[in-house]
Computed example of a mutant assay.
Amino acid sequence: MSEPNSHVVCPHCQATNRVPATKLTAAAKCGKCAQQLFTAIPHELNGQTVNKVIQKNQVLTIVDFWASWCQPCLMMAPEFKTAASQLPQVVFAKIQTDKYEQAAAPYNIRSLPTMVAFKNGKEVARQSGALPSHQIVQWVQSLK
């Protein structure tokens, strides 16, 4: 019997890759561009990539909805990056809501910063307000 696969969107070329479950903890590489799928740094999303990353990733994906004018968002940015480095098999991504309003609108973000956890294209949890990295890590680990 073959092992189950998970779809993972490449942060570099946006190709959707089918990755065997046993390879999700390894240094999985994109079949199209050969770069690492899990980079341990947040991906910068835009209007064209946000839906694909959210809808196609079957692994836990944490999206930080933020704005350039939001002081708590700016304070949390390095904390989010630190948390991403501590959870390399989780996809961390960011979308700037003041730049990509239309792309962020379907997610009903009411306060900033807001982190939303997605898996298999569905929202599984959300957390509003700036958090230090250790609390972000705890929150993400509680979702696994």
Rank of each mutant, 00 (worst) to 15 (best):
T25C: 02
T16H: 00
A26I: 01
P20L: 13
A28E: 07
A40W: 07
F65I: 04
V19A: 03
L24Y: 00
T61L: 05
T61G: 08
T25Q: 13
A26W: 05
L45Y: 06
Q48D: 15
K52A: 09
F38W: 01
A40C: 08
A28Y: 01
L37C: 02
K29S: 11
V50K: 00
V19E: 01
T39Y: 05
V63N: 02
I41R: 14
K23F: 12
T25K: 10
E44V: 14
V19N: 00
K56T: 09
K52P: 06
Q58F: 00
A34C: 08
R18G: 11
C33F: 04
C30F: 04
V53D: 04
G47A: 07
K52C: 02
P42A: 09
N57H: 05
L45F: 02
T16N: 04
A27N: 13
T61S: 08
N46E: 11
T16V: 15
L60P: 08
A27P: 01
V19C: 00
G47M: 05
D64Q: 12
T39P: 05
K52R: 15
A27L: 11
K32G: 03
H43D: 12
K23V: 09
R18V: 10
A21T: 14
Q55C: 07
N17P: 11
I62L: 11
T49G: 06
L37K: 00
V19I: 14
I62E: 08
F65M: 02
A28W: 02
V59W: 09
I62T: 09
N51H: 15
A21Q: 15
L45R: 05
G31W: 05
V63P: 03
A26E: 12
P42D: 08
Q35G: 06
T49I: 06
C33E: 07
A34R: 15
V63K: 02
A34Y: 12
K52H: 09
N51Q: 14
E44I: 13
V59K: 03
I62V: 15
T16K: 02
F65E: 03
A40H: 11
P42H: 04
P20F: 02
A26M: 12
P20W: 02
A26L: 10
A28D: 05
V53N: 04
V59R: 00
V19D: 00
K29Q: 12
V63E: 07
A34N: 13
L24H: 01
K23Y: 09
K29I: 03
Q55A: 13
K32N: 14
D64E: 15
H43F: 13
L45K: 01
V19L: 01
L24M: 03
P20T: 07
F38A: 00
V59Q: 04
K32T: 15
T16E: 06
L60G: 06
V53K: 00
P20Q: 11
I41T: 13
R18F: 10
K56C: 07
K52F: 07
A27D: 14
A21V: 14
E44P: 00
K52S: 11
A26K: 09
T22R: 15
K52I: 09
L45S: 06
K29P: 02
V63I: 13
K52W: 07
A21Y: 10
N51K: 13
C30G: 05
